[in-house]
Design a protein around this nucleic acid. Structure first.
Lengths: 143, 143
DNA sequence: TGATTAGTTGAAACCTAGTATCATTTAAAA
DNA sequence: TTTTAAATGATACTAGGTTTCAACTAATCA
């Protein structure tokens, strides 16, 4: 997601990093720009491959900063390397195709209502939840 | 879960392995017994520590067999090594204490109803779902 | 502006979790 | 009992990620 201000492109992710007191370095400009130009979700290794001139450690550190800041969302995957995508403001859940691994999003208010009704049943304080629907996506079904 | 038959203790997990055509070896007896004596969920590394005389490779292989056979359930955890627990017949979900990492279980019929209502919204065929409630457990709240 | 300094970088070493290899051992069929 | 295919486990390897630390640089200060 890139916001146009006075003809200058200003990166949301870069701004997030600056907002939490981190410096605007060329490595961070490159990493955040690459993430924003990636339409879909991505893995850390993918990002490293796309940015060979940025060190692995820096790529991983930048991802960690962005996840900690809430600007990136660590996607629920079945096995292997975690995937990330730019965090949306609204709360949502994920669909995961168990065949091709593609991750989708959905929102459903009933899920949130279920949460509230669970508060009585559960021994402790609810702080959050996560839900994944496993599917065979329409693309894989068509094959 | 251990079933008593004619005074002999017969392991369900071991039986599962034999049912899928695997041999009853001392290593498999040890691993399945250890899992059944573990009241809670466990990691592969924990099991290796508890069974120093069984090779790591064998412990991992046995867990894989049991998960593939559906007798063990790979629990959703936040980060790090996955946890396992003996699979229950009924479908259920998990509560995860984000402070101490303890995993609990709950069942809720509304969740299943939500699933059915989602079938229209989602582009693909639903094959399963998973839900995690993040909590601070009563034990951690008390501290 | 240039000097200062604390934050940042990246190569390399390390770590954790897990898998593959393969010579040796063993369960179980013949 | 012999046979043999399956299983084991020490070891090496891999993937994914973190730590270390000397060199570098952004941003502040004089």
């Amino acid at each position: 997601m890139v916001v146009e201000i006075d003809g200058m492109q200003e990166s949301n992710l870069l701004t997030t990093l600056e907002d939490i007191g981190l410096r605007k370095t060329s490595a961070r400009v490159a990493v955040t720009a690459q993430i924003e130009n990636t339409s879909d979700s991505f893995t850390a290794e993918q990002l490293c491959r796309d940015l060979p001139y940025v060190g692995r450690a820096t790529v991983y550190r930048t991802i960690r900063h962005l996840v900690d800041a809430g600007a990136l969302c660590k996607l629920p995957i079945l096995d292997g390397a975690p995937m990330y995508s730019i965090a949306r403001v609204e709360h949502h859940h994920h669909t995961i195709c168990t065949k091709c691994g593609s991750v989708g999003e959905f929102r459903h208010t009933t899920v949130e209502r279920v949460m509230r009704s669970l508060e009585k049943e559960i021994d402790g304080r609810i702080t959050g939840h996560r839900m994944e629907i496993f599917i065979i996506c329409s693309k894989c079904l068509a094959e």
